[in-house]
């Protein structure tokens, strides 16, 4: 890493100087070192699947990157909660903790699932492409509309569901 050219250096934001807040109308605001305030900021994960709480980029409304935050946990409590909430909504990927029913018909998989954001029924087309093995039992499921779901460990689901998923994993 140390041999990388200078322009490859990452611009980290000092977590102590970072303040995230919501405007009264729900827009993310970003203040840094009391120097500047971005009234419509955006934040996202560099590694949303592997490290969702580390390497967070912050951009202004013109999509210009303001810097990186190494870890959400380094932020002051209020900012941390706001950023977590923002990312929770920005990366809409409910965790599936139970599958009530999984059926297959004409190559489409019909899920009736329980997620941490409420129950959801959805359909997956071409499961070989849209159920992605992330390793150690973790699966990323993408439905026909492009909605994303996370299964932390599919082997903990019911036996018939595991057997179906085993075909793909």
């Amino acid at each position: 890493m140390s041999n990388l050219p200078e322009f490859g250096d990452l611009q980290y934001l000092d977590p102590q100087d970072v303040i995230f807040s919501y405007s009264t109308s729900g827009i993310l605001r970003f203040t840094y070192k009391d120097k500047y305030c971005v009234i419509k900021a955006d934040a996202g994960c560099c590694f949303p699947l592997k490290m969702p709480e580390r390497y967070i980029w912050v951009k202004d409304s013109k999509n210009k990157e303001l810097g990186l935050i190494k870890s959400i946990n380094e932020l002051e409590l209020n900012s941390k909660e706001i950023l977590k909430d923002y990312l929770y909504k920005r990366y809409y990927m409910p965790n599936i903790h139970g599958v009530n029913k999984l059926t297959e018909e004409f190559g489409l998989w019909y899920f009736d699932a329980e997620t941490d954001r409420g129950p959801r029924s959805f359909v997956v087309k071409d499961p070989r492409q849209n159920i992605i093995n992330l390793g150690k039992g973790r699966l990323l499921v993408i439905d026909v509309d492009g909605n994303r779901f996370n299964i932390n460990d599919y082997t903990l689901l019911s036996a018939d569901v595991v057997m179906m998923l085993d075909r793909l994993v």
Partner: peptide
């Protein structure tokens, strides 16, 4: 101001 009206899943994009 700028107002966040609502959020929707990809099913309604």
């Amino acid at each position: 101001d700028m107002v966040l009206l609502l959020q929707y899943s990809n099913s309604y994009s």
